[in-house]
Amino acid sequence: MSIATATPAIQVTGVTKTFSRPVERSARSRRRGAQSATEAITTGGDVFTALQDIDLSVGKGEFVSLVGASGCGKTTLLRMMSGLIARDSGEIRIDGRLVNGVPSKVGFVFQEPALLPWRSVHDNLAFALEYKQLPPDEREAVIEDKLKLTNLLEFRNSYPHQLSGGMQQRAGLARALATDPEVLFMDEPLSALDAFTRRRLQQEIASIIEASGATCVLVTHDVDEAVFFSDRIVVMGARPGRVTELIDVPFPRPRTQVELLGNPEAAQIRDRVLELVLGLG
C-alpha cells in the first residue's frame, strides 16, 4: 500500500551517520588486522559509519517495520527520524518540516518501558503531558482515556515496579499515545516480553493504532511481528548500515494473528524477509 500523497509523513533523503569509536578500541582492532575489506573501508580511523546514504519515504498512516541484523543501525535510524539524535548529512522531514530536535507530533515507545520509577502510572502520563500545559480537567480526561485504551485504568495509582513487564510496556504505550502523536516510533517495544504476552499485546496495539490513524515506524527482530503489523518491511544490512530491500505486505489492515497464520502468501513474505536478514537471499 504505497500512498502517494503530496507530502509523505516521513521523508528520509541521503542520510548518513557516523560515530567516533573510542581510540583504544580501534587501536586494538587495527593491531588485530581488519576482519574484512568492508570493515577496513567503513572503520576508517576512529570513525565508524553506522548508516550510509539512507533513503526512505513513509506515507501518512502507513505502518513500516525496520528489520535487520543486530547492529545494522535500526535504532540509530529511528532515533534520527524522531529527532533524538542529529544526523551527519542528508535530510529528514516529518510532515514536510526538517527535523531538528523532536517534533511535537512525534511519539516514541522505547525498548524498555522507560517509566519514572518514582511516579505512579497516572503521574508518568502526566509527565508526558506537562509541556502541553493543558487545563487539569482536560489533562485528566486524556490520561483516563489512554489508560482505558490500554486496560490500565485500575492500575492508575500503581508504581511501575508493581506492574508486570507487559503492563509496564502498555503504560509506555499509553504515555506515547497521550500526546496524540501523528507519527509513532517504536523500538523493539515487545522484545523483552514472553511469547504469550507479546502476541496479546501485538493484537491490542494493532487495534489501538488503527483507531488513532498514526503513521508508525517499528523496529523489530521478530519477522512474524513485522508481517503482522506492516504495510511495508524495510530490510536493512550492516557495515555500513543501509536499506537493502523494501517488501510490501499487501493484506488489508487491521489483521488478526489467526488469519495470517494460515495464509501462504504471508508465509512467503516472512521467509523472504528471513532470507534477506540472514543474508541467504
Binding site: S104, Q111, A114, Y131
Partner: peptide
C-alpha cells in the same frame, strides 16, 4: 533512556 524519554516529551 529516561533522559531520551524526557526529551521526547519536551521536558
Amino acid at each position: 533512556i529516561l533522559l531520551d524519554m524526557a526529551s521526547v516529551y519536551h521536558a
